[in-house]
Computed example of a mutant assay.
Amino acid sequence: MKKLIIAAALAGTFSVAHAGNAIQADSAAIKQGIEEGQMVHLSGEVVQVMEDERYLLRDTAGTIEIELDTGLTGDRQLQTGTRLDLVGEVDHDDGRTLVDVEEVNAMQGSDAATIDG
Rank of each mutant, 00 (worst) to 15 (best):
L86A: 07
L84P: 06
A11N: 14
H41V: 03
G33V: 11
V49W: 02
G62H: 02
E45R: 08
M39D: 10
A113Y: 08
F14N: 09
G95T: 06
G37Q: 06
Q32F: 07
L42P: 07
I34S: 11
V16M: 09
L4F: 14
A11W: 02
D26L: 11
T73N: 03
D94Y: 14
H18I: 15
Q38H: 06
T60G: 08
R96Y: 11
T80R: 10
G74P: 03
K31S: 12
S27V: 12
D91C: 11
V47P: 05
G74Y: 00
T73W: 02
D91Y: 01
G62D: 00
V46W: 04
E65C: 05
I30L: 14
G74T: 00
L4Y: 14
D59K: 12
I6Y: 07
I5G: 11
Q48T: 08
S15K: 14
Q77W: 13
A9Q: 06
A17N: 13
S110G: 10
H92V: 07
E35M: 06
R54P: 04
G95S: 10
T114S: 04
I23K: 05
L57M: 07
L86H: 04
T73C: 06
E36R: 09
A25V: 05
A25S: 07
D116I: 12
V16N: 10
A9E: 05
G117H: 11
G74S: 12
H41L: 09
L98W: 03
I5C: 09
Q48C: 00
G109L: 04
L86F: 10
T82P: 03
S110L: 02
G20N: 13
A8T: 15
T114I: 04
I64R: 08
D59Y: 01
E65M: 13
G95Y: 11
R58M: 08
S110Q: 02
A11I: 07
Q108Y: 15
V99H: 08
T114W: 03
H18S: 09
T70H: 11
D59V: 08
D75V: 02
V101T: 06
I34K: 05
H41W: 12
G44I: 00
V49N: 03
R76Q: 15
E67N: 09
E53F: 06
T13C: 12
E67W: 01
T80F: 04
V101H: 04
Q77K: 12
E103I: 11
R83Q: 13
S43A: 13
L57Q: 01
S15P: 00
A9I: 11
V47A: 04
S27G: 04
L57P: 05
Q108M: 13
L86S: 10
I115Q: 08
E45Y: 00
D93E: 08
V104H: 01
I64L: 03
Q77G: 10
G20W: 10
T70Q: 12
D94N: 09
